[in-house]
Write a protein that binds this DNA or RNA. Sequence first.
DNA 1: TTTAATAGTGTTTATTGTACACTATTTTAG
DNA 2: CTAAAATAGTGTACAATAAACACTATTAAA
Lengths: 247, 247
Amino acid sequence: MGDHEETAATYDAARYDRPSVTVDVVIFTLIERELHVLLVQRKRWPYEGSWAIPGGFINMDESLEQAARRELEEETGVRDLYIEQLFTFGDVGRDPRTRVISVAYIALVRFDAQHLRVSEESHDVRWFPVSALTRDLAFDHEQILAFAVSRLRSKLEYTTLAFQLLPELFSILELKHIYEQILGEKLDKGNFYRKIKEAGLLEETTHMREGRGRPTRLWRFKPDRAGDKQFVFRWREDRGGIAKDTK
Amino acid sequence: MGDHEETAATYDAARYDRPSVTVDVVIFTLIERELHVLLVQRKRWPYEGSWAIPGGFINMDESLEQAARRELEEETGVRDLYIEQLFTFGDVGRDPRTRVISVAYIALVRFDAQHLRVSEESHDVRWFPVSALTRDLAFDHEQILAFAVSRLRSKLEYTTLAFQLLPELFSILELKHIYEQILGEKLDKGNFYRKIKEAGLLEETTHMREGRGRPTRLWRFKPDRAGDKQFVFRWREDRGGIAKDTK
DNA sequence: TTTAATAGTGTTTATTGTACACTATTTTAG
DNA sequence: CTAAAATAGTGTACAATAAACACTATTAAA
């Protein structure tokens, strides 16, 4: 979340007659096969020293999504990634400075050790494993983060979102591992192989990767399916929960 | 959408250095077994005379959802209904007056012929069938409406949302008809009976309703399931699109 | 050369969806 | 008064999918 150049002492809420609008971006990545989220440590009041979801005030000449991408690049240097609006948080007391309405986004990036950089606004920027997040976050950011994780999990069941977390070439079992991480449960190997192949989303390559056991074949997503970063694939076929009448 | 007391001539955009925030509420109901949406006819510039989704600027001391409920009551007199945040629209040029960010909500109401009333802000308020909406709406409201209809359809597949459109007592075939209306396809009678009963959401009553053929039994939603207005029921059982391993 | 480790395939059974035929109870038309 | 039309509701057989899990394959390391 962005900052005014002020402190509790100098701050005068009555000055403002309109809410401020910010974008907050919950950025996920996969590090060592585990889901992580990016947080920044705040430098200024309020919540000085607390960890927070990166974000900031929107400019008057940019769309919400543009603002989200800009903030993201400012905090992390990442560009051209998958981003999606999550929810808008606007309760009255959520920011002690003034009425702040936050449009929250979810972003998914492939982990790249280089790209982390600390902006002027914060003490530190760091990836945290989602599984170990009991720490107190600034503002209502715990709530936003919980909401983002929940949404990510449920969307994975019927979308190709997980693709955004993978490198270009990957094995089917790596993909399975991502699903397990995010869904939080073990999946059956054989059934996963069958499903993912039947879906026709993957393209076999000649590349193999060697490891401790049998080498694994590498695949890529078919460009026409993965390229547009849209939700194309439903794990759960749309056979209709309510029985259809095809007559 | 709310209004300033100004016209194109008196309007001075430079005066504003922050975006305005509005809530817009897409209100659905079922009239004569057909899905309708509530629109208001604008009285003032911009888009004077055009039909628009009801909404208005938020107050500084109310949450977003409170604002949505307030606007809704001001326009229609309806209270205590189902409401859910849809999406936040914030493109730069969407309102000629100034930068306006609209948090859009979906509301579902039971149709009640009395409750419509025209506010001071508008010429007219009227229900329009969703199927026949080619007319030009104000601002980007066509886009918002299309998004709302699409979201409503997809949510119906795994939620109990449709319940909000029904009177307290209803027949199973009436419920089926709502699903058909909103999903836009015919459903099989027998399968629908079986599914809805197995779900254990309905409570049989002794009431019957007579019509032209055999009288039909009336049901109600079990209070513990329907009462909290939460999404409890999934049409599509969560058997896991991705094969689970229950070991 | 055996074993451990990882990759990948096949098959069987249980569950659920789909289509559609059938029965039931009322009003209306002749 | 009776037959037909209209609407309500049930039953069943078959197809499609999910779930469980046993099996084979190919490599490195012991």
